[in-house]
Design a protein around this nucleic acid. Sequence first.
RNA 1: GCUGAUGUAGCUCAGGGGUAGAGCACUUCCUUGGUAAGGAAGAGGUCAUGGGUUCAAAUCCCAUUAUCAGCUCCA
Length: 649
Amino acid sequence: MINITLPDGSIKQFEKEVNGYDIANSISPRLAKEVLSISVNDEIWDLTRQITNDSSIKLHKFDDKEGKHAFWHSSAHIMAEAIEALYPGTKFGIGPTIENGFYYDIDLPEGMVITEKDLITIEKKMLELARQKNNIVRENISKADALEMFEKKGDQYKLELISDLEDGTITLYRQGNFTDLCRGPHLPNTEHVKAIKLLNVAGAYWRGDEKNKMLTRIYGITFPKAKLLDEYLVLLEEAKKRDHRKIGKEMDLFTFSPEVGMGLPLWMPKGAALREQLENFLKKVQKSFGYEQVITPHIGNVNLYKTSGHYEKYGKDSFQVITTPQEGEEYLLKPMNCPHHCEIFKARPRSYKDLPIRFAEFGTVYRYEMSGELHGLTRVRGFTQDDAHLFCMPDQLKDEFKKVIDIIFIIFKALDFKDFTAQISLRDPKNTSKYIGSDENWEKAERAIIEAAAEKGLNTVTVLGEAAFYGPKLDFMIKDAVGRQWQLGTIQVDYNLPERFELEYTGSDNQKHRPVMIHRAPFGSMERFVAVLIEHTAGKFPLWLTPDQVVILPISEKFNEYALKVSNILNISDIRTVVDERNEKIGRKIRDNELKKIPYLLIVGEQEQESESVAVRLQGQGDKGSMTVDEFVRYIKNEVEQQLASIHN
RNA sequence: GCUGAUGUAGCUCAGGGGUAGAGCACUUCCUUGGUAAGGAAGAGGUCAUGGGUUCAAAUCCCAUUAUCAGCUCCA
């Protein structure tokens, strides 16, 4: 007699051992049809695996994360089966599931390539295989047998994977003519896979190491119903419409020119206006947190970066040194602001009474990113950090750190960024040579971050090996329109640069002490932040921020007067006269054309000359009815002030 | 940097060894008071750049360059 506890706490009894499929069937035939995998005592199993002891279980359908995982994992196997059939001799790397779908890394026989056109053929083959309704069978195998089997197949990638596994834990999955090394779990049968879309094909290094051979990676996604696939494809299309590169072009926010250079954005008037609003907003917040603005040059002597350690780490991969008519004199385009701010700290003796000192600068820096890395505004070679460096006593560190988290919260709240990941990035304990500074300082710094984040009640994920070379970080990641994660805000604790720059303050004991440094940039960079902001709002910025208030008075001699009133309170970068004396009706035509480009629009159309009343409509907010221009100005002023007030509180 | 794809008018794209195409945008005129109006006419392109093959190249081949997707990297 076996007791199976269901998620609601009820217990079902079975005469003898059962599997997930039997349990589902005992509840309802419909469930049995839809169920894909099962959690047994919090371990995910195949439906067909026999449960021999009392267990608590949960059945997973496609709606569950666990169900999707099994579904896509099996789909990856079906794809591999199809590829093996179509391209005999192909060797297989790994084929995991990802957030949306799966991929498989394959090594095609010499001379063969798969291009996007071939994906349709593979899709068809996959559907054909899925329709064969093959059972997917799990099999335990000894390490020796597994090695022998893949040796025979000549699949060196699987052999490499197997050699890293413990004997006794190795399982194979078999469906049709295809067998793969796999931990599982899988669907019981291929028939569940009804809709298949292979999305793209790209290169990927074996085991993610650029020294290894590059394999062909095929990405795909599958669904149990064709309708779900259609919905997903529509979603993808919608996401592409929010791409900041597309919207940026349409709204005339920024552009690139090959003449200027790749990865060097040119901000157009509206984009510059948007940036200015963001900068003003953050400056105001920072001022209330006791920051002081500083300004430093765009270049610095090479020695500055040799002192900081950046030159040794990044020198050869950076824009190269700038020489001068003076023999031996070398400068570097500023790749970061920290060393400059350290020198400001050093410029005069500091007392413990002055700390913390907080130097802020919208500092433009230049980094030679690899050409394949450049991506719209999210990854560029010249960008402006909303940078600040806080110098404090060790016992002030945690408090200061928490205050920076507060600033980031203010920003994310103001711009309605709810869906972010807070990532604690620590150094890789197995490879400490990549980092500078003593173990003791690293431990102190890492502890400070972990504690501060915990005390702020942040849900964090911890990633080893993601720290900066001088210290650990707390990074705030946000996804773009198509689900790629980008790091925005970052807070870093640093005991090392103060040592390298020999920074000191005089303590209450009249002794010299070393301050601790916090590097932080809540936006990350203006460029990347604007990019993510565009994708989150689809270009419909909040009123207080938008550069695109266009006021149009179709037929009115008072246009200039009105425009001035409105522009005094709004950040209007584009007010266009639409009154043409020769033909007063021309105004309408311009307005229609403008409309196409402007996602957020104020239209003020005069209705009755005598009363000076206008029709106001905020695009995206509907009609606001009739009001006079003065009323309109007051209304907008009020709106903007309210928005700003609610943010700053 | 690596693998693959792409580069044709301001934008979105079709075409393709022998006068360069469409829609939208732009200019002028006509019609039209209201959130992507209609009509007529016009302007706009060494088909990314440089070589090669050919009687002939925007088209085929090679190289370069930029963009896109992914990998790697990200102070």
